[in-house]
């Protein structure tokens, strides 16, 4: 589904990704761990198409297409979804209007007609319940005045509405209490299927107790320096990044 080869990227002339390789097949859940400054968020943003990050080398194939040649919105329409670490607040644009516009853009891309209003409301109400947010949030501005946990849950809600093929969660677990973490995990687990893949970028091993990954990768200084199964996360938790020879101070 996703094939990243020797990916290099920079932001404001600072080289962040320095030759990253990663292969992801449909049905798999990958966790990417690493200390602050190792390039985790850069990877997420580059995959989603953030123009603030400049790709300086390497290639990314997504469902047999050149991902780097695709516009941000086309990536989303082709089923790529990024749950933001810091979702923006957009006062004046309601969650409902935002979700409906997004769904209709994706449907149009697939050659389908606009979603029926009643069907849409039913879906939105069902999904907002699933992430344990009050339905009144649907009428509020996108993330406007939401707490950190509410914003993360709103990201998961969007993911459930848009049903992506490849979901990238950028530190969605950071700063969450255990109840919110469960909501996030349940959302991701509900989406797991043989056709879909998930990339979880995380700083903490805790999330992996709730979403069991197929693979764990350790990112350091813009490269994946170790890959393994879920037991790698436990080992990291126990021994810390120093065990792999990573100097956390130097990364940040």
């Amino acid at each position: 589904m996703l094939s990243i080869k020797n990916l290099q990227a920079q932001v404001e002339d600072k080289q962040i990704l320095k030759g990253l390789n990663l292969e992801i097949k449909a049905g798999e859940v990958h966790a990417i761990m690493g200390p602050n400054g190792s390039g985790k968020s850069t990877l997420s943003q580059v995959l989603a198409g953030n123009e603030a990050f400049e790709v300086t080398g390497g290639s990314v194939r997504y469902q047999d297409q050149d991902l780097l040649e695709m516009s941000t919105e086309d990536r989303a329409r082709e089923g790529l979804f990024l749950a933001f670490q810091y979702p923006v607040e957009i006062p004046g644009v309601s969650n409902l209007q935002f979700l409906k516009t997004a769904i209709n853009n994706i449907r149009q891309h697939r050659g389908e007609g606009e979603i029926n209003a009643a069907e849409f409301m039913k879906l939105a109400k069902e999904k907002i319940k699933q992430v344990n947010l009050n339905p009144s949030f649907l009428k509020r501005g996108v993330n406007e005045g939401f707490s950190g946990g509410e914003k993360k849950r709103n990201e998961i809600m969007q993911m459930l509405m848009l049903e992506p093929k490849l979901a990238i969660l950028d530190e969605t677990d950071s700063g969450l209490d255990i109840d919110a973490l469960r909501v996030v995990a349940d959302g991701v687990n509900a989406l797991r299927s043989p056709e879909r893949a998930v990339i979880m970028v995380t700083h903490y091993q805790r999330l992996l107790d709730y979403i069991v990954p197929d693979y764990v990768h350790v990112l350091s200084q813009g490269r994946i320096i170790k890959s393994g199964g879920k037991e790698l996360a436990l080992e990291l938790e126990e021994k810390g990044y120093g065990w792999l020879g990573i100097d956390e101070q130097a990364e940040a």
Binding site: A48, G49, N50, E51, S71, T72, E73, R75, A76, R77, F81, L82, F84, P87, V88, I90, F98, T101, A102, N105, I106, H109, Q158, L162
Partner: peptide, 14 residues
Amino acid sequence: EVYYLKTRGIRKEQ
């Protein structure tokens, strides 16, 4: 904000 909307499939102009 424009980027955030685009990551959800919404056209730039829209």
